[in-house]
Design a protein around this nucleic acid. Structure first.
Length: 921
RNA sequence: GGACGGUUAGCUCAGUUGGGAGAGCACCGCCCUUACAAGGCGGGGGUCACUGGUUCAAGCCCAGUACCGUCCACCA
């Protein structure tokens, strides 16, 4: 084995072997355990959020697989309608072509071509991360099976009247030329203006001043609204305005919606271009005049002058025209929320079109109940409030998109615009008795990508066919995902799965935190703070990293700043930390907090941890390979340390499993780390050396220690495997045979089980005694500047029978670890020579000072600990002298305090005694 | 406007039912001790944001304040 752990050397070959052997498939026996991978976009590449969530899912999957469960990780990718279409369109644009040059069929073919060729990036990267989903079941939301499910759901919902078509105001993306759902619109506050415009009354008797942030929409105004109680305008209700520029006559209406105190108290109403105006228009039966084209230019309803102008150009011209007509009162600066498409960033336009909708109310009810009843559990629990808040106010879902890539809506129209819904055109004709010569054309639109994602829990299991998987793996065990898609995806899966299977889709929903940069900023290309998980695994040169962060930016002017910051933060580039270190980092950071600031220092720390494990294993192997490890029998005597490390391991194992049950991966990781480094390496390996290296040890003792070394390590590797699959496999292959194990791979071994016979509190206490003995001496050495190499003779004062018994059990350990050449007991009344002392319970360890220890230094050391203990003593005494405390606190607490007090007292007495002795030298 | 988080060591974060403030990194000192310098041994460092309350006892429970953040809705 190399002296330093080198992840590159092992990862690839191990993964290939696992996949080739089919270890990722569900075993078919045991309790079902299933996780559904949130299907990443087929266009996507692995980002830190994926890597984090996939690590957690893989840890759970590997754990349950090792526990013997019938474990399935269902994976796949999402066709990601808009994202994918945009990627391929950009490629066409580069060739100076548009999708319209190709036509729909050719364009869709082109996307499939792209998918076959380039769609595998993210699944390749998942493999680098060591994830173990059942790749043979990998699904794609546009696969035939899933498409069948989509059509089936659509038709059934339509038959029940839960899918309908309607002409309504929708969120329209004028760049993509498609409707989008509410969730795909992001509202951000931006600086804008408020224009105050004069609207003259038709009878010439006066005017109203309206305030608007969108003057160009005045072309479509069909009313002016005032509050019914507004004294200023009450008299004008019912009169007409002569709309400037168009000259149309529009009514003044009264409506509660108007806020008297905002703006002028007069609102221009444009029902075709504003959601609130739309509602108001319906209440008042107003005309709806659409003045925009699909790309948000002024259409031919408007006066000739404005036709064909972009909406923002038209705004300028209209404001100018109003101004020159003396109709512009003033322009104020005004902050407003601007709706933008989450994909394009284009300002979304409320736009009147025909779309398909899902009526969600009846679907939402059982979905809410599933969470309220506790059948589905959010972890952390608080997320259910977010879920309820949205679900209680849920709006009908616009599911049609004017795109080419996606599931085409299974609806056909005849020449009279009658609509027929069915699984196929043939079915439609049969069902509606349409003769072959009736021409039918299919709806041009496709479905929202999230429509098919909503079916993921059952469509991937074969629905609508009745399959064994549907029976076994619905509901799945846990959904691991981010809070950003609770509405988009989680809620809709619950609704659809309840509706079509009658079952819940998953029992637990573990909501992970969001990975941010070390300062808490969101990682984004424009901030130039994105980390690629693969770069953390493989490492990356500084120049390459700078290139990656600054190439192809939307705002190239930021490039220089980003380059500079990157060079400052990573002067040497990024080290190759390896998959296991990265995974362990993610596990260790997965606490309950909703934001996770990714700290490179931790990756480095856990890389060091891998190296520590590697070298500890090297030590174990050096001392066991080609030696008798007791695997074939033979008498074995276990040392105190051997028994202790087993007892300690039981604790760690219990803590790990308990933490995993609560999805506290941070606690689980911490437990493993602490055991491995602070117990196994720092103490047990050191404690094994005296046994292995001493001529006085018997074969049985050596065999016992070797057996323990190799078997504890082997168990530990299995414990760690879910977090760190590669390094544990690599080492296990060498270690397992020394334990007499024949298995092919650690990943199909059983997870360690708690062995009650190895839980031994007495042994744990004994080693604590040994440790404090050794630490006491090391402390004196450290503070008194006594070289660790200098052998010391120590005297023990006030040793009890128990101390003596423990001494007998551990003399070899003490001699070696504290580097002692002699340990002698003092008689009860012998004060002994002037010494530096350490306390182990009531026993004093004395290191005679003669020629070794400076008087003042030792006095200072005593003063320091005396000060500390006296403070503790005072606090405890204060408590116990408080009548309220003594009369009201539980007895156990009081007893504990009393015990503490006595302990402090004893320590103080001994320290004072020491002080006197030394002062009198 | 509504909902939900956060504030603990220089940094990133734990702190389970209230009962002697923790980890990693960073820092200081000593050490290349035959697994590991990506290491070993020892050490320093915190008014637990603030105010008040409950309690014998509060980082933890309650009320309020300040600051930071997220989501939803939205006034033209």
């Amino acid at each position: 084995m190399d002296k330093t752990f080198n992840p590159q050397a092992i990862e690839q070959k191990r993964y290939q072997a696992w996949e080739d052997k089919g270890y990722f498939k569900a075993s078919g026996h045991g309790d079902p355990y299933c996780i559904l991978l949130p299907p990443p976009n087929v266009t996507g590449s692995l980002h830190m959020g994926h890597a984090f969530q996939h690590t957690i899912m893989d840890a759970l999957i590997r754990y349950h697989r090792m526990k013997g469960d019938n474990t399935l990780w269902q994976c796949g990718t999402d066709h990601a309608g808009i994202a994918t279409q945009m990627v391929v369109e950009r490629q066409l644009n580069a060739e100076n072509k548009t999708r319209h040059d190709l036509g729909r069929d050719a364009f869709v073919d082109k996307i499939w071509e792209w998918k076959d060729h380039s769609g595998g990036t993210i699944t390749r990267q998942m493999r680098r991360l060591g994830t173990s989903p059942d790749w043979e079941r990998e699904a794609f939301t546009m696969d035939d099976d899933l498409s069948d499910a989509v059509r089936e759901v659509f038709v059934q919902l339509h038959e029940e009247g839960l899918i309908y078509r309607g002409k309504r105001l929708v969120n329209w993306d004028p760049v993509l030329h498609t409707a989008v759902s509410d969730l795909e619109v992001v509202n951000e506050e931006e600086n804008g203006h408020m224009w105050h415009m004069r609207y003259p009354l038709a009878d010439g008797s006066g005017e109203l001043i309206v305030a608007t942030t969108r003057p160009e929409t005045m072309l479509g105004d069909t009313a002016v609204a005032v509050h019914p109680e507004d004294e200023r305008y009450k008299a004008m209700i019912g009169k007409e305005i002569k709309l400037p520029i168009t000259g149309r006559l529009i009514p003044i209406v009264a409506d509660d919606y108007v806020d008297q105190d905002f703006g002028t108290g007069c609102v221009k109403i444009t029902p075709a271009h504003d959601f609130n105006d739309y509602d108001l228009g319906k209440r008042h039966n107003l005309e709806m005049i659409n003045v925009f084209t699909a790309d948000a230019k002024i259409n031919d309803v408007a006066p000739k002058k404005y036709q064909g102008m972009d909406r923002f150009d038209a705004r300028k011209v209209i404001v100018e025209d109003l101004e020159s007509a003396g109709l512009l009162v003033k322009i104020e600066d005004h902050k407003l929320k601007v709706p933008r498409g989450d994909r394009t960033g284009a300002v979304i336009e409320p736009y009147l079109t025909n779309q398909w909708y899902v009526a969600v109310e009846s679907l939402a009810k059982p979905a809410i109940e599933a969470v309220e009843s506790g059948e589905i559990r959010f972890v952390p629990e608080n997320w259910n409030k977010t879920y309820y808040q949205w679900m209680y106010n849920i709006q009908d879902w616009c599911i049609s998109r004017q795109l080419w890539w996606g599931h085409r809506i299974p609806a056909w129209y005849d020449d009279n615009e009658n609509v027929y819904v069915g699984r196929t055109e043939t079915e439609v004709r049969e069902k509606h008795n349409l003769a072959d010569d009736v021409s039918l054309r299919q709806d041009e639109d496709v479905l929202d990508t999230w429509f098919s994602s909503a079916l993921w829990p059952f469509a991937t299991m074969g629905w609508p066919k009745e399959t064994p998987e549907l029976e076994t793996f619905v509901p799945s065990s846990v959904l691991v995902t981010g809070f950003d898609i609770i509405f988009f995806w989680v809620a809709r899966m619950i609704m659809m799965t309840k509706k079509f299977t009658g079952k819940i889709p998953f029992k637990d929903i573990y909501i992970t935190g969001l990975i941010r940069d070390e300062q808490g900023n969101k990682m984004s290309k424009s901030k130039g703070n994105v980390l690629d998980p693969i770069d953390l695994i493989d490492g990356i040169e500084l120049d390459t990293l700078v290139d990656k962060r600054t190439k192809g930016m939307m705002q190239p002017q930021l490039a220089e700043k980003i380059a500079k910051r990157t060079r400052k933060q990573f002067p040497e580039g990024i080290d190759a930390y390896g998959t296991d270190a990265l995974r362990f980092t993610f596990a260790a950071m997965a606490s309950t907090s909703r934001d996770i600031n990714f700290d490179m220092g931790r990756v480095e720390g856990y890389r060091n941890f891998c190296n520590k494990l590697w070298n500890a294993s090297r030590f174990v192997l050096m001392n066991t390979e080609e030696h008798d490890t007791g695997k074939d029998g033979g008498k074995m005597t276990l040392s105190l340390a051997d028994k202790w490390i087993w007892a300690r391991f039981q604790h760690t194992l219990a803590e790990f499993e308990h933490a995993l049950k609560d999805y506290r991966f941070d606690i689980a990781a911490q437990a493993v780390y602490e055991f491995t480094w602070n117990q196994f390496c720092d103490w047990y390996l050191e404690l094994s050396k005296p046994v292995l290296n001493s001529d006085a040890s018997t074969d049985a003792q050596k065999r016992g220690t070797r057996h323990t070394l190799v078997n504890v390590l082997e168990s530990l590797l299995r414990l760690m495997h879910p977090f760190m699959p590669y390094i544990t496999e690599e080492i296990w292959q060498r270690v397992a045979p020394l334990c007499g194990k024949q298995g092919e791979s650690i990943m199909v071994e059983a997870f360690p089980e708690i062995d009650a016979t190895k839980q031994d509190e007495q042994v744990l206490a004994d080693i604590e005694w040994v440790k404090s003995f050794i630490v006491g001496i090391r402390n004196i050495r450290g503070e008194m500047d006594i070289s660790p190499n200098k052998p010391l003779s120590v005297l023990l004062k006030n040793a009890s029978e128990k101390d003596k018994a423990r001494l007998a059990l551990s003399e070899g350990f003490l001699a070696k670890l504290a580097k002692l050449e002699a340990i002698d007991l003092l008689d009860a009344n012998d004060k002994g020579p002037a010494s530096a002392t350490a306390l182990v319970g009531d026993m004093e360890i004395m290191i005679p000072m003669a020629g070794l220890i400076d008087k003042d230094a030792e006095l200072a050391r005593i003063a320091k600990s005396l000060e500390k203990i006296e403070k503790d003593y005072a606090r405890t005494e204060g408590k116990l002298s408080n009548d309220n405390f003594v009369s009201k606190a539980p007895e156990a607490v009081i007893a504990k305090e009393k015990e503490k007090l006595e302990d402090f007292k004893r320590q103080i007495d001994k320290l004072k005694e020491q002080k006197d002795t030394i002062e009198n030298l």
